[in-house]
Design a protein around this nucleic acid. Structure first.
Lengths: 162, 162
DNA sequence: ACCATGGATGCAATCGATTTGCATCCATAA
DNA sequence: TTATGGATGCAAATCGATTGCATCCATGGT
């Protein structure tokens, strides 16, 4: 779960939207613009990969706020459609800030060793999903999909040596 | 999370392998054949869909054994490749007993309302997975995929009325 | 600018799933 | 039959997440 690999930069999720626009969105939905809330949004804005409540809390630094407040705010932001929740199957929720108009539906390739994350471009073909829905009479069908493997830096041994 | 819908039978996962073969597999890997273990295997054998630790514990009935023992045994069985763990994203682990030679890789379509489960035939195209692995230098790439929606019995309103 | 008010926060307690320490037990091999 | 290491029961501990409650304060109305 530590991240030696996450050091090397992947070109993902550079949020262009300034903090002011984000807080404005809060105001427009009659949410108060508080210090903890702004700080949390700023942390999310700077992060390029899904981040946990605890990580957000740790990153808050000076603008310290209670961990429970972080949890509550992420629920709020999720309800507002400003962040998307991801589940990497390790029992910890992770969140990504969404740009205006982005529904955030995408997937990740996660290193099972160092937790390095690559955002997966493109998505699972929806035809299969629709066929599934039709075949079984389900409606409003969505899916959760994440890929797992060993990243280059965590690969077992040098491929060309020995 | 209750299951009004799970009543109507889906023709899935009828485990043919008798209990004796399963316990034999335990013996072959120098695992002791204890009463709790046999009872747990029998519960798993009868179940056609992923089942939680607590559900297994509840189903044990007479052959009551400690919940911690259920947890420990499912880890053991998972390590032995006899069961497969599934994650429906609700923070509870579920397990399916595997037939001899089955690696258990498949997916489910789960009703978000009543938790009815349909086993999804076929699997996500591995080409995309391999392309992903190649593109990012990952090895041993796998994936987790589950579908979610509303089952026919939980659908909002009668489609033909009103 | 002032006030009232409901949302927001801090703090501690609680919850639910899962794990673990430890003493005891027992299935199995010698 | 014995010893022995795995297995179990029980309780305590972990861990992520939620919640009750008193207090606070951002914001709208005046």
């Amino acid at each position: 779960m530590s991240s030696p690999c996450s050091r090397h930069p992947h070109p993902h999720r550079l949020i262009q939207q300034p903090l002011t626009e984000l807080t404005e969105k809060l105001r427009s939905k009659s949410r108060k613009i508080t210090a903890p809330r702004q700080a949390i949004l700023e942390v999310l804005r700077r992060h390029q990969h899904p981040i946990t409540n605890k990580e957000i809390h740790a990153a808050l630094g000076t603008a310290d706020c209670d961990l429970a407040t972080v949890y509550r705010n992420l629920h709020t932001l999720e309800d507002m459609g400003m962040v998307r929740r991801f589940d990497f199957g390790d029992g910890v929720a992770r969140f990504e800030l969404l740009e205006e108009g982005d529904d955030g539906h995408h997937h990740h390739l996660v290193c099972t060793d160092c937790s390095a994350v690559v955002e997966v471009e493109g998505c699972f073909p929806t035809e299969l999903e629709q066929a599934l829905a039709r075949r079984h009479g389900f409606t409003r069908v969505t899916h959760k999909l994440e890929f797992f493997g060993l990243c280059p830096k965590c690969a077992p041994a040098a491929p060309a040596s020995a």
